[in-house]
Design a protein around this nucleic acid. Structure first.
Lengths: 228, 228
DNA sequence: TGCGTAATTATACGCTTGCATAATTACGCT
DNA sequence: AGCGTAATTATGCAAGCGTATAATTACGCA
């Protein structure tokens, strides 16, 4: 009986005529569908991101998804790549806009990773949703590994620029360690938003990364008393 | 047509008679069902842990699950609690068996958290599976928070015993930071088992926790050159 | 302006899911 | 030994899933 339940296109015109629609550029539609999938996964986990729910969120009918993606798994993979790319780009932007001094650059990188919008329950939900799917999809696992190493390399580059002497092995170990602190704090802060005071994670992150690298990062952070 | 596909109870006796079964103690059955659910979630994520698959793995028919758990969600919650309890108990055991010196106790705690069987792709899959479900189930979220804080308190107790002076605020920050490093390293080691050399995570973990707390933990680790 | 076609909707199919309920059977108890 | 009952199996159902395919319609282009 009931067909689906779309977003109820305004008034039921009583006459059983077709839904009005407008054609879209292919790239736009793909992006819309990916955005809808990402939103649903982050809100309710992979289970609620059904073909019908995604189509509904994107304002189209389910069949259209098949027109742009051969299978639902293909759409999921595309969504994952989109999220990863966005995160990487955001990190690069923070570094690009950072001050010139190496210590300040690293400090900005650390703190920006430990406050909203990076620290965010929805973002963690999205991440967890993809994570569990990685175990069965080799392509997605490879994408994850590449993304993780890329991020770590970025951090390692910032550490290498610091005025201190460390050989390659030490540099690698430091990058792994600093990345782990940041990841761990991000995770805890996102999973339990009320368990930490405002700014606490950033302070702890700066202190920890500083301790691991043997320098006082907090002292090099650009002033931020600005309340506006 | 085909009923389900059970684990094929030996020979099809050709006569369409009932499956043989044996009655079990209630606690045993519950434990079996929980174990089956945990195994499936850790292997393939929540999606493959269907009522039928769980029953099959436990060697019973699907209907029995409803006899022990009012709903599938109740079984999932029970499985989550079981896993958390097991992890907590394992941590307590490691600490209980550890040497008397505070530094050595902490060192043992850190290294044991960063090698198998704690570091394990399947364990991470299980954890991720639960994590994404936490976002919709308030009861499960509360259970997670309690478990996280319990673990962190354990770590904080070990840190408090160290021969150094630190006020309460510093103690809390140190516990959060050390917990984050351990979590982050555990996560990365479990997600990308081939990205780290054997023993590398433990070494980095010891060095990082030591750096954060301002002492040389590796020097206090009980000798372990034992290759047998 | 009207035609052609690709984008979009509509409908349907087979499968799986969680859950309900009825039929059976193993086992404790007297 | 055999009865009673609770544990277990068997069967069925409605809903939702991903996907295939046919019918429509918006829009670029002559």
């Amino acid at each position: 009986m009931q067909a689906y339940n779309y977003a109820a296109p305004e008034k039921e015109t009583m006459t059983g005529d077709r839904r009005k629609f407008s054609r879209q550029d292919e790239d736009t539609r793909r992006a819309d569908l990916i955005a809808a999938a990402v939103a649903l996964i982050s809100e309710g986990g992979p289970a609620v991101a059904t073909v019908r729910a995604i189509a509904d969120r994107a304002g189209v009918t389910p069949g259209l998804i098949r027109h742009y993606f051969a299978t639902k798994e293909a759409l999921t993979r595309a969504a994952y790549s989109a999220v990863m790319d966005a995160m990487t780009e955001a990190s690069l932007k923070v570094v690009a806009e950072a001050p010139a001094r190496p210590e300040a650059r690293l400090a900005v990188f650390v703190t920006s990773s430990l406050r909203p919008p990076v620290v965010d329950p929805a973002a963690m939900g999205l991440w967890a949703g993809f994570l569990h799917q990685m175990r069965r999809d080799a392509d997605m696992r490879a994408a994850h590994e590449a993304s993780y190493l890329h991020y770590r390399d970025l951090l390692q580059g910032l550490i290498a620029d610091l005025p201190r002497k460390a050989d390659a092995a030490r540099l690698r170990a430091d990058a792994i360690a600093c990345n782990a602190v940041i990841d761990g704090l991000w995770l805890e802060g996102s999973a339990l938003p009320d368990a930490f005071a405002p700014g606490e994670l950033e302070r702890i992150g700066l202190a920890s990364v500083g301790a691991i690298l043997g320098l006082d990062l907090a002292a090099h952070l650009p002033q931020e008393g600005n309340t506006a």
